[in-house]
Amino acid sequence: MTHLENATAGAPKAPAPRPAATRRARRRRRDAVMFIGPAFLIYAAFVIVPLGMSVYYSLLRWDGIGPISGATFYGLKNYIEVLTDDDLLQIIGNAFQLAAWFTIPPVVLGLAVASAIRSQMAGRFGTATRTILFLPQVIPLVAAGIAWSWMYDRNGVVNQFLSLIGLESWTRGWLGDFTYALPAVGIIGAWVLLGLCTMLLVTGIARIDGSLYEAAKLDGARPRHEFRFVTLPGLKNEIGICVTVTIIQALSSFDIVYVATAGGPGIETTVPGLEIYRLAFAHRQVGLASALAIVLMILVLACVLPIQWALRERKQ
């Protein structure tokens, strides 16, 4: 210990001065509040308040037309109905099946495309591929739903193609078929989301240091090793984003299903988004619709938060 340190250690402790630093800190806090305040107010008005109101409505029995004061308090009965009603449970199950369709094909195909065009990214081929694959993303979902419902029609291009290759026995009205309607809708969603996933993954793969692939080649890696040990770990954040976005899209989907099948046949393709709309505006069961919406939100969070958490964990 130095002489100076000794002297300092031995000296009586002076009371800590509270001068400019505190004033500066206060000013910084005020600036922060001023900057965050407007955004927070907008967020509160459009997210927190509606969310709170939904929670409140979910505890009521209300037709949505009469005054709210006329609604009766229903407790957790709406939630119990959501979690016990067979139809509603099937609808929630449909959403999860759709999530698999919306997530797995776009991410897997996106990875395949990104890996395939990695070396040609800068060339015309890469640009053309990216443009073609991104195109579905800029088409309105309603238009995509209509176009695909034509293609899935009994005389549509899908059945024409099957007939052409000799699989006539496979032809059917896809969107009206109890077994295949949901996968058919899933394929529409996968087609729409493939562009987004490919763009994200192509952008991500471009950021991977090219010398990693060269180092792997020299280490003895074959293409499958390069994919497993360089591409996949290098794209884990992008894959996480893709999975998050596609799951949210699937669980909260409405427009594609509404246009393509309107939830039919029966309730085979009905998803929570569509059912919430029906319950609230057709059946005048705002409380039950709100409860389903809250359950849907919790399900989305339950799916997405672990993914986000896992990504953050790995980053550390």
């Binding site: 010398s211 990693l212 180092a215 792997a216 020299l218 770990p233 290098g234």
Partner: peptide, 14 residues
Amino acid sequence: VAMVFQSYALYPHM
């Protein structure tokens, strides 16, 4: 042959 790269080229997740 084995090569040492300017950018080190270490696999970041390993």
